[in-house]
Design a binder for these strands. Structure first.
Length: 558
DNA sequence: CAAAAGTACC
DNA sequence: AGATCGTACTTTTG
């Protein structure tokens, strides 16, 4: 049989995506490599140190990884790469951080690793003492030490332990049932008596909030929950009240000046905020409370320069939750070092197959750029090119045709640039909701959409997180935030609430422009998760003047 | 409601 | 290869 993959010296894997065993073997591949590019039928994966540490933390050995490569590669694995893999996997656990005397922590390890750690400038700058048995730091530098070492290629296993926490007792309500994978997620996080901190990755709509609540309940300590927005914070609060018997007065949104409650919910923004004097008072007051656990909702946002201050709460167990542990700046490694390794993940498609999430089909439609735009496009700089491609006026006709085809279904129209999106919404006569739409007005539109009173709604980037519109079964993406895999995944995520009918996720791409490349890149995370994109020219998918049923390439209307 | 602060991407 | 800049967006605050 044909080989599944070709291994290159630099850790790049060329994988035959049409190989009969590809689907079955993909999870094992993803355990230590990341999908970097698609040139069908070749999928290009990259082995990165962070993925090897991650694999090691989940118990993989270098031998297993190398055996997998030997079994499926066309040629022998290059010796240098074999050595790199063995080295990187072995790094996990070589450096460990321990509690020292009096507010000190100690970095221990073999002499070689310690020597490497010693010369990392940011580490040297905060080393309190350099002893033969290890490097000593102030406990307050716990996050900084781990982050600096990880970015220098030295992952640290954190054995410092946690502060004494206040107890909190409540139960899940009788009728609150955890699904199998949710229970498994909780179990994995709590293994070793909950000593480990880490990240749980579950698709949008899979019930991450409930997993977080179940973890808090099982641990029985005071909990701080950090979310990306006030809206998300309120959703957590509501979920706590709906799903558990926790006393309502024990759960609150953080209010500066008011005493914190056993479960306190607030946003990354607020934690990071500083007052006029430059003091981060919220962070200070939240840090002093004896939390037993801090939950980081949408933890992929944590690496932002100020949001990551929220990771200074190292005295508590840390649980990160996200659907999309990817960033275009590669800062996922910060999540690994500041929160902990990924301890549980379920591929999106797997939950679809199990019937927990709606089935979604992905379609990429190429729309020609009209001649007038074509001229401007060719003489524009790269930024302007993105904008012109995104605002392609020919997309409007395609959107109209798709709306006709999906008459009677609830459709989201998603865009990045607000002005072109506004023009489109006006032309279609549908409401537009953006970040500047006042909260009450947002709620009114969302409610109208949920109840089916309106069937279409145009959304800017606010749709990327925490917008709950469960009835949507079709999304038309008219433009996106460049090559953001994160955004693509979150947007498809809007369609995953269980539906009776299959969802469709359309992406409109200006033909022959930079958009074609960015669109391909955006899709990589979802392709990793098992989704397939069908690509058509818009006229081929929606031929003018031809009845839909006769159109070539149009899947049967259901 | 406008200004300020923050994020993500190229 | 890594860093910086510029643009468009969101949330929070006064």
């Amino acid at each position: 049989m044909r080989a599944l993959l070709y291994v290159q010296n630099d850790g790049t894997l060329l994988v035959q995506s049409d190989h009969p065993h590809y689907e079955a073997l993909r999870p094992r591949l993803l355990a230590f490599a990341e999908l970097a590019q698609r040139m069908d039928p070749i999928h290009i994966y990259r082995i990165r140190p962070i993925s090897l540490w991650q694999a090691a933390s989940l118990g993989s050995t270098a031998r297993e990884i190398l055996t997998f490569l030997r079994d499926h590669a066309a040629h022998p694995v290059p010796y240098d790469l074999q050595r790199t893999i063995a080295q990187e996997v072995a790094k996990w656990g070589r450096l460990t951080l321990h509690q020292g005397a009096r507010e000190r922590i100690v970095l221990r390890g073999d002499p070689e690793s310690l020597a490497a750690a010693r010369v990392v400038p940011e580490v040297a700058a905060i080393t309190a003492a350099d002893r033969s048995d290890g490097l000593v730091f102030r406990a307050a530098h716990r996050a900084r030490v781990k982050r600096a070492l990880a970015s220098a290629g030295l992952p640290v296993m954190d054995h410092v332990g946690y502060q004494a926490a206040s107890a909190l007792s409540f139960s899940l309500r009788e009728e609150t049932r955890l699904r199998g994978y949710q229970e498994e997620a909780v179990r994995r996080f709590l293994r070793q008596g909950g000593e480990q901190s880490g990240v749980i990755v579950l698709p949008c709509g899979a019930g991450k909030t409930l997993v977080g609540i179940a973890v808090i309940q099982a641990l029985g300590w005071h909990a701080l929950v950090l979310t990306p927005s006030e809206t998300a914070a309120r959703q957590w609060q509501r979920e706590f009240l709906d799903r558990t018997d926790v006393r309502p007065e024990d759960v609150s949104l953080y209010r500066p000046g008011h005493p914190v409650t056993p479960v306190t919910i607030t946003t990354y923004q607020r934690v990071a905020a500083q007052d006029r004097r430059g003091r981060r008072r919220h962070l200070e007051s939240l840090t002093t409370h004896p939390w037993g656990i801090v939950v980081y909702d949408e933890v992929h946002m944590l690496p932002a320069p100020l949001f990551r201050l929220a990771a200074d709460l190292q005295g508590a167990r840390r649980l990160g939750l996200t659907a999309t542990l990817v960033r275009e700046d590669g800062a996922e490694a910060d999540v690994f070092s500041l929160i902990g390794p990924k301890c549980y993940e379920v591929p999106w498609k797997q939950l679809e197959e199990a019937g927990y999430l709606a089935a979604v089909r992905c379609v990429e439609l190429h729309v020609p750029l009209p001649a007038a735009e074509q001229g401007r496009y060719l003489s524009a700089g790269i930024r302007e090119q993105h904008r012109i491609a995104a605002a392609n006026p020919a997309k409007r006709g395609v959107v109209e045709a798709l709306l006709k085809q999906h008459a009677g279904e609830s459709v989201l129209i998603l865009g990045h640039y607000v002005e072109p999106l506004r023009a489109l919404a006006d032309a279609l006569g549908c409401p537009l909701v953006t970040g500047t739409t006042p909260q009450p007005e947002r709620e009114r539109w969302f409610e109208a959409f949920r109840t089916g009173r309106i069937r279409r709604i145009a959304l800017s980037r606010i749709a990327n997180t925490a917008v709950d519109l469960p009835c949507a079964s079709v999304a038309i993406q008219v433009s996106g935030l460049f090559g953001s895999r994160q955004e693509e995944a979150q947007r498809l995520g809007r369609l995953l609430r269980p539906q009776t009918r299959e969802g469709v996720f359309y992406t409109l791409v200006s033909k022959g422009t930079v958009e074609a490349r960015t669109a391909k890149h955006r899709q990589l995370y979802l392709v990793e998760q098992g989704y397939t994109y069908r690509v058509y020219d818009s006229h081929e998918y929606l031929p003018e003047g031809v009845d839909e049923d006769e159109a070539v390439g149009v899947p049967e209307h259901r």
